[in-house]
Design a protein around this nucleic acid. Structure first.
Lengths: 213, 213
DNA sequence: CTAATTTAAAATGTATACATTTTTTGTCAA
DNA sequence: TTGACAAAAAATGTATACATTTTAAATTAG
């Protein structure tokens, strides 16, 4: 596999697991040495991670590991609420049973085996949602959603530790599939909206508490 | 100035002016030679342009200059309509007169001097809108909008040649400012929606005609 | 002691050279 | 002729070396 991609994944995962502290400033050389690759490889991965929000620019030299805030979590939820129901509305009429089957497979992977690491859980969760939106056939919309979920997944470490949300989330996912199978697009979108709001509210609440302490 | 940024701007502009034909496949070496820089510089610019949609991937080697389609123009308009009124709603209450003044300055630059090249006209147009949205204080929303307008600006060459829209557009911009000055957020959003729809409809119509011919 | 300027160190930008992968070309057998 | 396979060409990935820019430190003037 390409070193650039290896580093990209490893580094992203390390940020999510908070092996690099929020606020810390990192240099290309530091990372090149730490991960035992040349600076070129770091530069390539860096640019991608910057554009995806896993890193933020820090003056002209260095990149900063971004922190977490309730305000940001709230904004991301707002944007999801603005775009995901739209995607589902467009996609629902075109969803066939084989696609719903794929989504169900992902769901099973997600909830049967216990104790998945956060990055894997987040990956599967987005795979599930993505499969439902895919048939909307709007590449730019799907790309924006991919980006948003990159951001959201930064917070998944928190959700994992703080919230006992897995059970409710599983139920909501199953209900969503049932509504889509019965072609009740309106109800599916309403449920999706509630699903996103619910998850976001818990996360925001947790972050606010943590902020006070 | 950094060569990477020089190349980034020059190349983007060349694509917009269709000096590189849509569908054409370009290699790093080709571009490095053509623009007289090293491949490293091309790689850096390439990655940015890929993530912004000015180029698309083409297998494992080479990058393709993307084409234009009515469907894509329609999708971009849909996304603008979904996000820009939201941004304006959030920003309008916080807009002060000095900010509105800045916007008016941009408008003057845009419509007084005649015959601006397309990339400059597009830049100013987005500067105007961006100034109005800025106070919403939602970095991710603003970032998504920046991206969307990168895409839209790819089409600006067409708008320039095909549509005699400048007059109407100028009027709508002035009206929008007036409504914002009088703190009529609702009306401003309605006008913004009409403004985006109007411009998009003309562009889509033009592209559909061209597609038939 | 503060602030400004100079100097050294460190970090990033860029070019070149080499390695690996991918694409194309050409050959041969069915 | 067609298709599979092998070899050559071309393109991208990666490392190293050097240039430029940026940051930090040190020095000196006020």
């Amino acid at each position: 596999m390409l070193k650039k991609q290896q580093l990209y994944q490893q580094f992203k995962q390390d940020i999510q697991l908070q092996h690099w502290a929020a606020g810390q400033v990192l240099t290309q050389q530091q990372l090149a040495q730490h991960y035992a690759v040349s600076r070129i490889v770091v530069r390539d991965a860096q640019q991608t991670l910057l554009s995806e929000g896993w890193l933020t620019a820090h003056g002209k030299a260095g990149m900063r590991v971004p922190g977490f805030s309730a305000a940001e979590a709230e904004e991301l939820a707002m944007l999801r609420l603005q775009l995901e129901p739209l995607a589902l509305t467009l996609a629902a009429p075109k969803l066939n049973f084989s696609q719903l089957g794929l989504a169900e497979d992902v769901l099973q992977q997600m909830h049967c085996g216990k104790a998945l690491p956060p990055y894997q859980r987040g990956e599967l969760n987005w795979q599930f949602h993505r499969l439902l939106y895919q048939p909307c056939d709007k590449p730019h919309l799907l790309q924006l959603l991919d980006q948003l979920h990159q951001q959201v997944s930064r917070y998944l470490g928190y959700q994992e530790h703080a919230l006992d949300y897995a059970g409710t989330s599983a139920d909501e996912h199953q209900q969503l599939l049932a509504l889509l199978r019965s072609k009740d697009t309106t109800a599916a979108c309403a449920l999706l909206t509630a699903h996103i709001s619910h998850a976001a509210a818990l996360l925001v609440q947790y972050l606010k508490n943590k902020q006070d302490a």
